[in-house]
């Protein structure tokens, strides 16, 4: 591979987003496999803190694209900035997180620099001369292997969680920080009017990435905090099987199954749910399914990836604690 690999990071109001290190981790693996230098890229109004954090990682350089026009985010400014940088430096492969933000502008970038673009990648492997990128089309029901058809500049975006931020290795010393000049005089056509958080009203579980669902096994409404805490630790939506909603322990808009909502989150944790077919049809296409149930023969295990057989009141609090520790919030 001729040019450098760029790992383009994402910054928000609170600085560098953690998903950025997942892109670094993937970039390090690709750089090693392909013998190409890896450079981190920061795009922000003020990128100095982000640049310093990235310079501690094993990268050849950190390129900082700094301009007042980069906050708040607009697709025009981000596209113009990176088009200019790419034209000046000619990297061969540019990596991004597959975030809501990158989905908004990276396809435009690909069109502007005439790049191949493989989006929402979950893994890669080297096959002879080809770097193969694995995707999950058909809403994750199937996998596909994708390669680039041309030798020009290529772009890859990585599904959140596909690579581990913890795998982003530290470097021997601080990497060089390079200012990448851009001219963003042409105003963005998009005007950002207001950014706000909405109070949650009616629950739409279909878009939840993580769901903790509770069933009859919880026994009574007073015990619900056990699963609520797990959901909170995971940043998950709380859902339920029909008996829980029929008993009005949770409102009906949290019901999963043929008479409730159909969901396909990345992670579904079924707690105290035996797995009647009416429930399974609503969740069996989820990415990874975990079942916790006292009955080893419960049908829910047949559609699950991982199972723990035992008393949920022992297992769930333990899981909550360990998740908090793993997420650094314990």
């Amino acid at each position: 591979m001729a040019g450098a690999i760029w790992a383009v990071t994402e910054s928000g109001d609170d600085g560098l987003k953690s998903i950025s290190f997942e892109v670094i981790a993937c970039g390090q693996a690709l750089a090693e496999a392909l013998g190409s230098p890896l450079e981190a890229v920061v795009m922000a109004a003020d990128g100095s803190a982000a640049a310093e954090a990235l310079a501690a990682k094993r990268v050849e350089a950190v390129r900082v694209i700094e301009d007042a026009a980069l906050a708040p985010y607009t697709p025009d400014a981000y596209t113009a900035a990176l088009v200019e940088a790419i034209k000046a430096e000619a990297p061969s492969l540019v990596l991004f997180p597959h975030s809501y933000q990158s989905r908004d502008w990276v396809p435009r970038l690909a069109a502007e620099v005439d790049a191949g673009f493989i989006s929402d990648v979950v893994a890669h492997h080297i096959d002879g001369d080809d770097t193969v990128f694995v995707r999950q089309p058909y809403q994750g029901k199937l996998n596909s292997d994708c390669v680039f058809a041309g030798d020009g500049i290529n772009i890859v975006s990585l599904q959140s969680g596909a690579y581990l931020a913890d795998d982003a290795a530290a470097g021997d010393g601080a990497a060089e920080i390079v200012k990448q000049p851009v001219n963003l005089a042409a105003a963005s056509r998009t005007e950002v009017l207001e950014t706000f958080q909405e109070v949650e009203n009616k629950v739409d579980l279909s878009r939840a990435e993580v769901i903790v669902a509770v069933g009859r096994g919880i026994g009574k409404q007073e015990k619900l905090p056990v699963v609520e805490e797990l959901a909170e630790a995971l940043g998950a939506q709380l859902a339920a099987s029909r008996p829980v909603c029929d008993n009005e322990w949770l409102p009906i808009d949290r019901q999963i199954g043929s008479s409730g909502q159909t969901v396909t989150p990345k992670l579904y944790i079924a707690v105290g749910i035996s797995g009647a077919i009416q429930h399974l049809v609503g969740m069996k296409n989820s990415g990874t399914i975990v079942a916790i149930n006292k009955d080893a023969n419960a049908p829910v295990f047949s559609v699950s990836d991982y199972g723990i057989v035992g008393d949920l009141f022992d297992i769930v609090p333990e899981l909550t604690n360990q998740i908090r520790e793993a997420k650094g919030t314990g």
Binding site: F117, N143, D145, A149
Partner: peptide, 19 residues
Amino acid sequence: KTRTTRLYVPEKTKGAEII
């Protein structure tokens, strides 16, 4: 500019791995 070389069912063990 990109090419899909293979479409396949992801490996999924039959039933849960009981831990």
